[in-house]
Design a protein around this nucleic acid. Structure first.
Lengths: 165, 165
DNA sequence: CAGAAGAGATTGTAGATACAACTATTGTCA
DNA sequence: TGACAATAGTTGTATCTACAATCTCTTCTG
């Protein structure tokens, strides 16, 4: 246990970034919900002596890609962190024996983060923990249909936020 | 300009934390949307030479409270950061002349973060920037009614995530 | 085919956050 | 009342991340 022992109780009271407009409140709810769920996931991982959430996200992203490998730039984009930050994150997973760096023959600038068996095994252990926590958090309130609608709504918002309007 | 030049283009392709379940995808969309909107807000603030987003969130939280002041613990909970982190964040805003620390007569353990006029003025300048960006991101896709529904849905999820299921 | 412009990734450094240990104050109970 | 537990904040330390500068390699252009 540990991982942000601070909140996770009555957070429904006061709101950060409240702007009094409906859209502002939606954003506030989005931010707090993200934080709450994220904390829950990290607590669950810490309880099982697993690595932190970003490690899981990286392993999952690579595992879901067709060749079990991803270019650094793609990974940075998928995980929404800077390229510099990604380089160092990959460094840690490589040092832990979960990934290895491979290189591109045709374009020698690009390097891949490639999943190793140890990474696959660890991911297989972590996935049920994450999925279980998400089920608790989401399925108590949302049907499968509603979850899909939520995803579509959020994807739409993200589209506007990225594109620029 | 700057603030995370990495992503913000085709993030719709591959997904971090994808678990293949509907709820997992909803969580993935939630995480990426939060990151995208958050980035957009930070870019907008940076462009206007404003302080970073957590400063705005803190000023807004305190300004929305009845006495223009909040206990450290409450603030930490509202902003979903640790108490230790909050102490240092408040330190910075105090040093910037936006807040001051005040103390409780009846319980000398508690200290308040109290809004100063400079903080109010800065908040008044930042609010329209934030609100404007949120309108672009949200109102393009969501009616007021839909925004409220989204807020309710997310609050429900947060309730499950906090309480424990 | 040379040189400039652009793309992909890494490194250095500063700033911010979490975690754990600590101090100070208040509450409880024998 | 006196000891022990609980609560509110702060501080020390390590880790993580963003940002900017840099390096290598590729592509474009004359």
């Amino acid at each position: 246990m540990s991982v942000q022992t601070t909140a996770s109780k009555t957070a429904a009271s006061n709101g950060a970034a409240r702007t009094t407009t409906p859209h502002g409140e939606a954003w506030g709810a989005l931010a707090r919900t993200h934080a709450a769920v994220s904390q829950r996931l990290q607590e669950a991982l810490a309880q099982g002596d697993f690595p932190p959430l970003p490690w899981y996200e990286m392993l999952a992203a690579i595992a879901d890609s067709p060749d079990q490998r991803m270019r650094m730039g793609e990974l940075a984009e998928a995980m929404v962190i800077t390229r510099g930050g990604l380089t160092k994150l990959v460094d840690r997973l490589v040092k832990a024996g979960l990934l290895e760096r491979t290189f591109c023959e045709t374009d020698r600038r690009v390097s891949y983060a490639t999943l190793l068996p140890a990474g696959q095994h660890l991911l297989a252990e972590m996935r049920p923990v994450i999925v279980g926590e998400l089920e608790v958090a989401f399925s108590a309130n949302l049907s499968v249909r509603q979850a899909e609608e939520l995803r579509e709504t959020l994807d739409g918002v993200r589209g506007s936020a990225c594109g620029g309007g």
